[in-house]
Simulated scan of single mutants.
Amino acid sequence: MSLYVRGRPVDADIDAIVGQHGFAVETHTTTTEDGHILTLHRIVGVNGVRAGAPVVYCHHGLMTNSELWVLGDATERCLPFKLVAEGYDVWLGNNRGNKYSNTHARWDLEDKEYWDFSIDEFARYDIPASIGYILQLTGETVLKYVGFSQGSSQLFASLAMNRELNGKIQHFTAISPVLVPQRLTHPVVAPLMLNPHYIEYIFGPKALLPFVPTVNSWLPSGLFNKVIDVSLQVLFQWNGINIPQSQKQVGYPHLYSTSSVKSVIHWFQIIRDQQFQLFNNTQSYNTSNIDTEVLLIYGDADCLVNIEKTCESLQSCKVETVRCPSYEHMDTLWAKDVENRVFNVILDKYRDIDGGREAIKSSGSLFL
């Protein structure tokens, strides 16, 4: 089934997007130890969710949200829908600060304290809280984790901080995995590497570019898509030639969601020092604590992925790599042939783990 978008789909939320594909969404919330209220989305097929079905948790990248996973221009080009059809219980997470997780037990969005978070807080609080909630609700003891870009970084950091969490991850698929990105060379961006805190002087201490959704709604879709293409070319030298225009039309209007300026500063510190480290260089994440099995899927034209350095950092666990020739960063979700080159690779891996398609689909007996 193809997803046809008429007009400007900017205001459509995940329920509407998923509904166009014939699926539904359950909305759940959990509160972190430091008071952030996170929204989790569970994808539900026409037959509901089978009790005892193996769980897959998907987490988005920097400055996006759970919608990222369901923005394929056709149903078969969305990984969660393929997983649900295979018999999995599929959940999508959201970081603090994005459009679905923007409340706190104490702080308001106008408060500077609300936005005082970086990768450290994502890893220390958000990921364990989300995984803990899902496992408690489903009664399962382990789940499979799929992270895109920073979504993979957050689990790497979380596993490094929390050795106990390793026992709850049956398998970890890192798509376009970002651990220590290669240095950015654009003349506007490169000087910020010298002192990443300059970013706060430019953008303030709260949310980064909160006006983007408004600009998105004002501009004609073709012009907005062009702005995105040019921005990605200038910043990262991505050409986007593997992504169909139909995919950009569906995906680009939903690509951006708010995050903190501090989280971007954190990335610039990591890039400058070429170390996967905590905020303000206090210490490196101890990746030797990671012992879950990892599958790395990456494009060899992706300047943000340093696959050699990533593998060097993961010597304490079993690691498999899948290289996608000519793929850039977003291609691992949106390229025209992504179903065969990425999604089916993941499904085949899961079938190996779970004993095949029929074994997965027959797990459990009751619908929730």
Score class of each variant (00 low, 15 high):
L83D: 11
D354M: 12
T292N: 06
P181H: 09
W115C: 11
T321D: 04
E339W: 05
P244Y: 13
G45N: 11
A129T: 10
G45P: 09
D352R: 10
K82P: 02
V261H: 10
N306L: 01
T321I: 15
L304E: 00
L38A: 03
Q136F: 05
C303S: 12
R341N: 14
S313F: 03
Y125K: 03
L219M: 15
A174C: 10
I271K: 02
S118I: 04
D302R: 06
P80K: 11
Q274N: 06
N166D: 06
D352E: 09
E86R: 12
S260N: 12
E320M: 08
K262G: 04
V70D: 06
T75G: 04
D15Q: 03
V142R: 13
W107H: 15
I271Y: 05
N195K: 08
G204E: 09
E26M: 02
E86W: 08
Y252W: 10
L314A: 04
D331V: 14
D331A: 09
R183Q: 07
F172E: 03
N289K: 01
A359I: 09
N306E: 02
S66G: 15
D331H: 01
G299S: 02
G355Q: 07
A160E: 06
V342R: 00
Y256H: 13
S2D: 15
Y201C: 13
P325F: 13
D89R: 06
N344H: 11
K361C: 15
V84N: 14
L40G: 01
P205M: 04
K226V: 00
A160L: 04
V230I: 14
M63K: 08
P54A: 07
R183F: 05
I360R: 02
N195A: 08
L192P: 10
I290H: 02
V146I: 15
L314I: 10
V227R: 11
